[in-house]
Structure formats: C-alpha cells, structure tokens
Amino acid sequence: GPIITTQVTIPKDLAGSIIGKGGQRIKQIRHESGASIKIDEPLEGSEDRIITITGTQDQIQNAQYLLQNSVKQY
C-alpha cells in the first residue's frame, strides 16, 4: 500500500515507557511494526510529545497497537 505518515500525541510522562531503557522498547516497536517512528523532543512548556509514525496502513496500525501496549504496562 501507499506510505503514509500519522502523528500521535502522548503526555511526556509516558514517553519513558515507550522509549524504554536505552531506547530498547522503541527499537523493538520499530522492528516489530516495520514502521519508522520518530519521537520529537517536548516543546518548551508543553506537557506533550509528538510521535511521528511513517509506513503503510498496516505498519502504522501495528505500531499504534504496540505503542498503546507499552503505555498500558507502565
């Protein structure tokens, strides 16, 4: 399918649970989903961080599912 980009906003407090120790968790999510995932640095004074996910519809759905699971375990 076509490559698309979607953005998800997360509270910055949850960023740690998604990134994992030394970036292990986010690497695993990238690997498992096949999507490209970029977590922006939090904006000055903002409570949120923006996650940019790029890939096919399937890859993005996979990545979103894995991201949600990471947050739930936290």
Rank of each mutant, 00 (worst) to 15 (best):
G45A: 07
R25W: 11
S36H: 10
E44Y: 03
I51K: 00
G20L: 07
S36P: 00
K38V: 11
G23F: 07
T6W: 00
D58K: 05
L67T: 03
R25E: 14
G1V: 04
S70R: 11
I39Y: 08
N62P: 03
Q24N: 14
G34V: 01
S36V: 14
D58P: 09
S33A: 06
Q28K: 15
I18T: 05
Q57A: 09
A35F: 00
S36Q: 10
P11N: 10
K21D: 15
R49T: 13
K27E: 10
P2E: 15
T5I: 02
I19W: 13
V71H: 03
S46G: 06
Q24G: 09
Q68T: 06
T54I: 07
Q24C: 04
Q73C: 14
N69P: 08
T56Y: 05
Q57E: 11
I3P: 02
G45I: 04
R49I: 02
K27G: 11
G45T: 10
T54C: 06
L14P: 14
D13H: 14
S36K: 15
L14M: 13
N69R: 12
H31Y: 04
H31M: 14
Q64C: 02
D58I: 06
D40P: 06
K72T: 13
V71D: 14
Q64T: 10
T56H: 12
Q64S: 07
I60V: 12
V71Y: 03
S17M: 11
P11E: 12
N62S: 09
G45L: 07
G20N: 09
D40C: 11
T56C: 05
Q64P: 00
I3E: 09
K27C: 13
T6H: 03
N69H: 07
Q68C: 02
D13Q: 09
I53E: 00
N62C: 13
R30N: 13
R25M: 15
G55A: 01
I10V: 15
D58N: 09
E41G: 08
G20P: 10
S33F: 01
T52R: 11
I51T: 07
Q57K: 11
T6I: 02
I26R: 07
D13G: 09
I19Q: 05
G55C: 00
I50M: 15
T5M: 04
A35C: 10
G20Y: 12
R25I: 14
A63Q: 00
G22H: 08
I37H: 00
Q7E: 14
Y65I: 13
G55P: 00
K12F: 08
L14K: 10
G20T: 13
A35D: 00
G22C: 11
A15P: 10
L14Q: 12
K72E: 15
R30F: 04
T6N: 03
E32Q: 04
G22K: 12
T54F: 02
I39C: 10
I4T: 10
P42R: 08
S46N: 11
K12W: 04
L67M: 07
Q24H: 15
R30E: 14
G20K: 13
T6M: 08
I26E: 06
Q7M: 02
I19S: 09
Q61W: 02
E47I: 12
P11D: 09
A63H: 00
G23M: 12
L67H: 00
L67V: 10
I60Y: 00
G55F: 00
T6A: 03
I37L: 12
I4P: 04
V8H: 03
G55M: 00
Q64E: 15
Y74V: 13
T6Y: 01
T52D: 08
I53H: 00
E44P: 11
I10A: 09
L14S: 14
I18K: 03
Q59K: 09
T9I: 04
G34D: 02
L43T: 10
A63V: 04
T9Q: 09
R49C: 12
K12V: 08
D48W: 03
Q68G: 09
I37D: 00
T5E: 01
G55Q: 00
G20V: 07
I39Q: 04
I4Q: 01
G45H: 08
G16S: 14
S17W: 03
Q59H: 05
Y74W: 05
I26F: 13
I4W: 00
K38F: 06
T56W: 03
D58F: 07
Y65G: 15
Q68P: 09
I4S: 06
K12Y: 03
V71G: 11
A15V: 09
A63K: 00
L14T: 10
P42F: 06
I18R: 03
I4G: 01
G55R: 00
T52A: 11
G34P: 01
I39T: 10
V8I: 07
D48K: 11
Q59W: 00
G1D: 13
P11F: 02
Q61E: 13
V71K: 10
N62D: 10
S70K: 05
I39W: 12
S17I: 07
R49W: 05
L43I: 08
T52G: 04
Q68V: 02
I19R: 09
G45P: 09
I53L: 09
D48H: 09
I39R: 01
I4M: 03
I39P: 05
K72L: 03
I51N: 00
G34Q: 08
E47N: 11
I37E: 00
S36T: 14
K21M: 10
E44K: 13
S33H: 01
I26W: 07
R49P: 12
R30H: 11
I26T: 13
G22T: 14
K21Y: 12
R30Q: 11
G34M: 04
I53D: 00
G55H: 00
R49L: 13
I39M: 15
T5Q: 03
K27M: 15
G55Y: 00
K38C: 12
K72R: 11
Q59F: 00
I10W: 15
N69V: 10
A35V: 05
I18N: 05
D58G: 10
K21E: 10
T56R: 12
G1H: 01
E41W: 03
I51A: 13
V71L: 10
A63W: 01
D13P: 14
E32P: 01
S33Y: 01
S70A: 13
G45W: 07
R49G: 07
E47V: 08
V8M: 14
T6L: 01
I50F: 11
T52N: 05
S17A: 13
S70H: 15
T56V: 04
E41P: 12
P42C: 08
R30T: 10
S46R: 04
I26D: 08
I60W: 00
